[in-house]
Design a protein around this nucleic acid. Sequence first.
DNA 1: TTCCTAATTTAGTCCCACCTAAAAGAAGTG
DNA 2: CACTTCTTTTAGGTGGGACTAAATTAGGAA
Lengths: 220, 220
Amino acid sequence: MLSVAEENYIKCIFKKSERSLAAVSTNAIAEAMQTKAASVTDMLKRLSEKELLHYKKYKGVRLTAAGNEVAKQLVRKHRLWEVFLVEKLDFSWDEVHDIAEELEHISSDELTEKLDKFLGYPKYDPHGDPIPDQEGNIKYRSKVTLKELEVGETGHVVGVRDSSATFLQYLDEVRITLGSTLTLRNRFAFDGSVQIELADGRALVLSEQVAKNLYITVNS
Amino acid sequence: MLSVAEENYIKCIFKKSERSLAAVSTNAIAEAMQTKAASVTDMLKRLSEKELLHYKKYKGVRLTAAGNEVAKQLVRKHRLWEVFLVEKLDFSWDEVHDIAEELEHISSDELTEKLDKFLGYPKYDPHGDPIPDQEGNIKYRSKVTLKELEVGETGHVVGVRDSSATFLQYLDEVRITLGSTLTLRNRFAFDGSVQIELADGRALVLSEQVAKNLYITVNS
DNA sequence: TTCCTAATTTAGTCCCACCTAAAAGAAGTG
DNA sequence: CACTTCTTTTAGGTGGGACTAAATTAGGAA
Ligand SMILES: [Mn+2]
Ligand SMILES: [Mn+2]
Ligand SMILES: [Mn+2]
Ligand SMILES: [Mn+2]
């Protein structure tokens, strides 16, 4: 039985090392967890004691297979609850993260599976992130940020890199949603902003900041 | 912001003093919380410090208005989640208590209200207990235990006094559910057991133990 | 009223999860 | 190599929430 704090650390480390295979530094964890490096060292020792991660002083950490398993189940629960909140309870996509941050710690496995069934086995959460299956398998989609697109290429929005409420509310405002189809029309060297055209014909200029945080799958 | 432990104590004290107006003793709390009296004393001092209850050494405790408010919101959340688990996720009524015991601590008020709406504003939980409304009002139903019924009287099942899994599973087994209509046909002095007749004509003998734990509203 | 017993509180520890301050290692620079 | 700077760990401390053992009090029985 892990505490909420232990689970949050595990998930945080998982996110930092997902798709990178490098060890995660103490400072990186401290920053992400909004705590101090000394507290992180403390926790790393405890989690290492429980064989959830490999820890060698000054060398950063990586999760063990067991730690990875724990992390993926947490991500699964987090994303399933987000789907529930948006699809069933009518929350908007910028309101669900903090609530799911609590709900992901409810321990019943049976609950997770029944929730998954109730939701119709969704593959992606409201932010376009893939939901791990019961065994922890995650289907990553190939995607690039809008910033990396070539002028003239067309693709559709499949996710956001930053899911802060302010960014999501901005997207609502300019009516860009998951699934929106867009074509990159122009890139401005001056400030890195880009001009896009949406399927409904609207032309928009988006800042570099926005372009870096929108994930696109190029239509093939 | 209250901790999960603090919330559980508050709810426990509420349940002990609901409908009795007497102060609750340290030992009674210790027994219900499965902990030691010394730990209870500790917690009572903290909760008293937070003005959630009135505490005088050796005199037992009673909740303040604020404490009562907290308790009723917890009961509201607990029972709403139980309805969700049974109605939407297809859990049976004997499986939901422990899960709701965790879910009741999710803090978002907006979540509670949206859940209530999603469920269609239910009045009772799967065990027949009333769900407090948003303001904390609880509609108690007049009810007696089956043991208190007079021979010849007819009523219907509106709740259970004991909602342990074993009792609920027993009721499933003999096909008695909330809403079942029954008539008391006989009472046996030997062991206090009772004979009832159900609406479908079935005659059953129930032990005194069972009769004491079934709540009935007499048909008027 | 005095005694006895059960209930309750106090005292002293423990572990968890955080903190600050200080020490120590890593890694690059002249 | 010696220095500097940044990162990380260690040391020491706090509060929450539990425990056991010992002291105290309330309240009923004699
Ligand atoms: Mn969390
Ligand atoms: Mn998400
Ligand atoms: Mn609880
Ligand atoms: Mn219930």
